[in-house]
């Protein structure tokens, strides 16, 4: 029996990772429904749980690759590695409808730009106040404040250290969770009751799961409008953060 288990673990690592992540997301969906009445998106719970498991993996193995240092979960390295990550992120662009997007007009584009630059500046500024001084770490932490996708993409492109990457992801995930949890409460304050403001909201709040979760809990009809600008958000962040914004940080530091 043990021999078979060892052989499966060694030969089927990626397939094991698919099964493990699927199980984690299923549990997260149950928790989202039963514990939070769907207010906190299942994907956000899954990501938080994955970070917690990575923390636990670090404790039991003493390694630097989180849960992937546990032999049974080594397949996570391939599944969550740079190659498949970038591949999947590019695929999300397929859902963007440029005609609908054009209707949001200049205001949507302005919100998108603000939604990238402002969080980046705040994130990098707070990182500076916490003692980070190198441009790569500052840009990665600033990018993490844009979304939890832009953070690791930027960090990977610039060659940031794993702790900075994890912190960047943690910031982005926390932002997504906060957006999901507080959007329904802040909806009236934001004037979030029509497609136009939903597009502005998607551009500024950014994180797709945060926007989709937050809007779904506020008014389901607004979800596609928010998701539309939010979809552009990750692309814009991935384009600007490791390039223009990084060069600005580098020039300032």
């Amino acid at each position: 029996m043990i021999e078979i288990a060892h052989k499966v673990i060694a030969d089927q690592s990626l397939v094991l990772a698919f099964a493990a992540v699927g199980a984690l997301m299923w549990i997260s969906a149950m928790l989202s429904r039963l514990l939070f009445a769907g207010r906190i998106h299942a994907s956000a719970i899954a990501i938080m749980a994955a970070l917690a498991l990575a923390w636990y993996g670090g404790i039991i193995t003493g390694g630097k690759k989180g849960l992937a240092d546990v032999p049974a979960f080594a397949g996570l390295l391939l599944m969550g590695g740079a190659m498949l990550r970038d591949f999947a992120i590019v695929a999300t662009a397929f859902e963007v409808d440029p005609i609908e997007a054009r209707k949001a007009g200049l205001l949507g584009a302005f919100a998108l730009l603000l939604g990238t630059v402002v969080p980046f500046a705040v994130g990098a500024g707070i990182a500076w106040s916490f003692g980070y001084r190198d441009a790569v770490s500052l840009a990665t932490l600033g990018a993490g404040a844009v979304t939890y996708i832009v953070g690791p993409v930027t960090g990977a492109a610039l060659g940031a250290s794993s702790p900075v990457m994890a912190l960047s992801i943690a910031t982005g995930v926390l932002k997504a969770v906060l957006v999901m949890a507080t959007t329904p409460m802040a909806a009236r304050f934001m004037g979030l009751n029509n497609p136009r403001s939903a597009m502005i909201f998607g551009g500024l709040a950014g994180t797709v799961s945060g926007v989709a979760g937050g809007l779904a809990a506020t008014d389901e009809k607004l979800v596609p409008y928010g998701a539309l600008t939010a979809t552009f958000h990750t692309g814009l962040g991935c384009l600007l953060a490791p390039s223009v914004l990084f060069l600005i940080v580098k020039a300032v530091v």
Binding site: I47, A50, A54, G66, A68, P152, M165, I169
Partner: peptide, 8 residues
């Protein structure tokens, strides 16, 4: 992204 988070 969940798999990526788990290896940080």
């Amino acid at each position: 992204v969940v798999a990526m988070a788990a290896q940080q």
